[in-house]
Design a protein around this nucleic acid. Structure first.
Length: 588
DNA sequence: CTTTCTCTAAAGTGCACTGTGGCCAGTGC
């Protein structure tokens, strides 16, 4: 019995109750109960077994008894009965944009739709249009939502595969015949989404290692199993390949399988110019006048042999990195250790799940010198946004709490909504009482590109807007971002000295890495922000640093590498005069 | 279903957008 089982059952009950159109507050109670269980800072399973849940906020009499039943027996009769009323495949429909419980219920009841496949067929044959509440447009929208979902199948977010990669590398490392291990592919390059995991192991016993790999947890199906390569499908549909090579071939295999394909093609051309061919095993001479091939022990030796400085995997997209490496002018990329603090974090005051004090302690534990709090503003009702009174009380609380820290400080801020017309959710009189402010779009996503760009530019022109939050609002593999003219926003950020956030939530990673080089070259500063709603989400910083590296950012391009004193000074400087601060950080 | 300065009773995020159907209902944030 695990905590996850308890959470899953409660969440499924909520979904089923939605289909049955139960009292919405009842449904909400199950959802919040699930969230409480998920983030409970103690052994909730044991507490449930002992029936010791009384007094936990969000868990009343009914949930207490149900959780006890789950913890003791592994299942819940109430849940099983509820589940028997609907086919399990009906849940697939909840992933479709635009379909909620009410519409799904109608589709199920009036059309016998039980699965995604049923729905697609019904739409394609024109059976849905004409149903009360559905017209031609709805039918088309459903089809495009289905296509959208299909286009995401087999693709995974960097953040969701990271734990599996860590676990598998660890298991490989434990084997006595393992010499070296590495993860390659798009994961190593830090792409925001990946299609598979490519693992590599150096060993003199390749067949033993590929056999060992079959015992790894979570494998659903073995797609191919040879002596040096094995390919498996994991339970969630993610494909994972392992290649076992000799220690001598390891650097070449690592380089080759890390890609990108385009980067490797360019590299091979470079090798040819020296009279060598390059593949996943080694360099070999292809002409009589070939230059002498140097020894290769590590991946960097390959780059050096080709007359290049070592190119970090994140940069290997053939976007100019080879030319720059030839000139020996590769940027020294930012590293996680360079960060001194971070902004844009939530607490229980809005929709975060940890208190101000817990968030501060977590930041201290990570070794940060400062943490910026930025709870939602009043217009974000869905996120329990703060009104002026609550915000000012929070500011006062932060000021008081700051007296109790040594070598650490909180910055009081707000994630203020950018309203439809580009005005802000709080007046300047309120904003000027904060240490900083992140401005973000949370509603009216469907404006035209021109209107959206104008809207955001108006917000950035405000003296109190320190930084722009998640540039496009995208949710990777889930929702397209709103359309906005990145180039114009970047220009405006440079002009107004507004910092642009690199939101590290693995679902967002927004602004996209493809734009950062341009921003950097215009002199725009980046703030790597976790958008943490839990203490453990401060660890998202790790993903943000990888994206920053993909965007060629250096320590000096990232504002939260400044120490507390420098950061404090920068925030107190009027925006127009921050040129100096920006130059200063650049030299640092 | 849970909480509560109405504690055996009532209140519990509110607005914008879309499409449909006739001025509303469902969805998403």
């Amino acid at each position: 019995m695990t905590r996850e089982t308890m959470v899953t059952i409660l969440e499924e009950i909520a979904l089923l109750m939605e289909l049955k159109e139960e009292n919405p507050f009842k449904i909400k109670a199950y959802r919040s109960g699930a969230e409480t269980v998920r983030s409970f800072p103690d052994d909730i399973v044991q507490r449930a077994i002992d029936n010791d849940l009384t007094g936990i906020k969000g868990i009343g009499e009914a949930l207490r008894d149900k959780l006890h039943e789950i913890a003791v027996s592994g299942k819940l009769e109430f849940h099983e009965k509820l589940r028997a009323e609907f086919p399990a495949t009906l849940f697939e429909l909840f992933d479709l944009q635009g379909l909620g419980p009410k519409k799904i219920k109608v589709l199920h009841r009036d059309h016998g739709i039980n699965s995604l496949a049923d729905l697609q067929l019904a739409c394609e044959t024109g059976k849905i249009a004409g149903t009360p509440g559905f017209g031609d447009k709805s039918q088309l929208n459903i089809l495009s939502a289905i296509a959208q979902k299909a286009s995401h199948s087999g693709i995974f977010r960097l953040g969701s595969v990271a734990p599996i990669v860590r676990e598998f590398l660890d298991l490989l490392q434990q084997h006595p015949d393992t010499l070296r291990t590495a993860v390659c592919g798009s994961y190593r390059r830090g792409k925001e989404t990946v299609r598979d995991i490519d693992l590599l192991v150096a060993t003199s016993q390749p067949a033993v290692l590929t056999e060992y790999f079959t015992t790894f947890p979570g494998i659903k199906q073995i797609l191919a199993h040879g002596d040096t390569k094995i390919s498996v499908l994991l339970e969630d549909g993610l494909q994972c390949d392992l290649r076992a090579v000799t220690n001598a071939h390891f650097p070449f295999a690592l380089q080759y399988f890390s890609g990108s394909k385009e980067h490797n093609v360019a590299l091979r051309q470079l090798a040819l110019s020296k009279g060598w061919s390059l593949n996943e095993y080694d360099f070999s001479p292809v002409r009589d006048d070939a230059q002498l091939i140097p020894d290769v022990y590590e991946e960097k030796d390959i780059y050096h042999a080709l007359g290049l400085s070592y190119i970090a995997p994140e940069m290997r997209e053939n976007l100019g990195e080879i030319e720059v490496a030839q000139q020996g002018e590769l940027p020294k990329l930012i590293e996680i250790d360079n960060l001194r603090g971070t902004f844009h974090n939530h607490t229980t005051e809005s929709d975060g799940r940890n208190s101000l004090e817990e968030m501060a302690q977590a930041a201290i534990d990570l070794g940060l010198q400062y943490l910026g709090i930025a709870d939602h503003s009043r217009s974000s009702f869905q996120a329990n946004g703060l009104d002026e009174d609550r915000l000012l009380r929070q500011v006062a609380k932060i000021r008081k709490l700051n007296n109790s820290f040594e070598g650490f400080q909180l910055f009081a801020g707000s994630e203020v909504d950018i309203l439809k017309d580009g005005s802000l959710d709080f007046s300047d009189e309120i904003l000027c009482q904060l240490d900083y402010c992140v401005a973000s779009v949370h509603a009216s996503f469907t404006l035209s590109e021109e209107e959206m760009t104008k809207r955001v530019i108006r917000a950035m022109e405000n003296e109190h807007v320190t930084m722009l939050g998640h540039m496009t609002g995208r949710l990777l593999l889930q929702r397209e971002g709103y359309t906005i003219n990145h180039a114009k926003i970047i220009d405006c950020a440079a002009e107004t000295r507004t910092i642009i956030e690199l939101n590290c939530n693995p679902k967002r990673l927004d602004m996209d890495w493809r734009w950062w080089r341009r921003a950097r070259d215009k002199g725009v500063l980046c703030s790597i922000n976790p958008d943490a709603h839990f203490t453990h989400q401060l660890q998202f910083l790790h993903f943000g640093v990888i994206q920053a590296r993909k965007g060629w950012l250096r320590k000096g391009d990232v504002v939260n590498t400044l120490d507390y004193e420098e950061m404090s000074r920068l925030l107190k400087t009027p925006k127009a005069q921050r040129t100096v601060a920006a130059d200063y950080i650049r030299q640092a």
